[in-house]
Write a protein that binds this DNA or RNA. Structure first.
Lengths: 150, 150
DNA sequence: AATCAAAATTGTAATAGATACAAATTTGTA
DNA sequence: TACAAATTTGTATCTATTACAATTTTGATT
């Protein structure tokens, strides 16, 4: 982990007491900005921390999200995904391969401060869905196979 | 169901062949704009259609969403929710009671037409999270009990 | 250093939403 | 009426997540 110190700092910044496991989990999410699931985090760390429990990973990720140290994404129907990039940005999910990508959005900020009736808004997420370049190409190729154009 | 004809029309509009079950499911989602889950739809219909299978409900809702006749919301970590209101609007989820509400958003439109690199965007959803009025009040009351102010 | 309570971690068992799949039924057409 | 295609059903299964009790670690106090 190249950001161990940063992980500890991030924990401190959001009021989370640093333990071996918490530092490792925070560090993993900061190092792997591919929106990992709890299972991915567990798999990635269990080699270096053989005693690590999956429950700890689940609990810690939820704790970190609750404290605001990471983002919890619900863009994936199946798995909750986590993101250490807490700067305002949107997410895209390919409906074919399931890959989740960051999408910078300029005026997202304008939409996030709204107050709607008696609802107190604490966070906001903008999700896009569609097809990534690779899957787009594959889908086109398959469509050609079904109805070949001479 | 007061919108049976509208349900059939909606199915036709999005290229879904009407069957007894599909009409009922489409109609239920149109009549109950509370973002029901598959289980809610099943419970709501199984009285009037005793033979209805839960698998049919899951499959049909997925089909309707795929065809664009309804929206599939992933705002709830636990359950997928469905919305027959296919006009552009945002959603709010209370982190305490789990209730999902509609939030009209004016310039959401501006964010949805973006094209990001090689990503082909087919849909976009804006989610807000926080506390609804009722839960906000309850949370405040509980906070007072813990640290009473004389 | 020794003690002890609080906090954190672990492991197992259970829950529940969703899906796979094959059998049964319905539909539409020849 | 016959028959293939489409739809529905029911059961079994999968898997992400949580509950919970036991164990371990931490940190303060003597």
């Amino acid at each position: 982990m190249k950001t161990q110190i940063e992980a500890i700092e991030r924990l401190a910044q959001f009021g989370v007491k640093p333990s071996l496991q918490r530092i490792a989990i925070m560090g993993y999410v900061m190092d792997n900005l591919v929106h990992p699931t709890a299972d991915t985090v567990f798999s990635g760390l269990s080699a270096s921390i053989p005693t690590l429990s999956k429950t700890t990973v689940y609990n810690t990720l939820k704790l970190l999200a609750r404290q605001g140290a990471i983002l919890e994404l619900s863009i994936d129907d199946k798995n909750v995904r986590y993101d250490a990039n807490i700067f305002r940005h949107a997410h895209f999910r390919c409906k074919r391969c399931g890959g989740v990508h960051d999408v910078p959005v300029g005026d997202f900020e304008a939409l996030t401060l709204k107050y709607a009736g008696d609802l107190t808004i604490t966070e906001s997420q903008l999700y896009y869905k569609g097809y990534c370049g690779k899957c787009r190409a594959n889908a086109d190729a398959e469509a050609d196979e079904e109805a070949p154009e001479p």
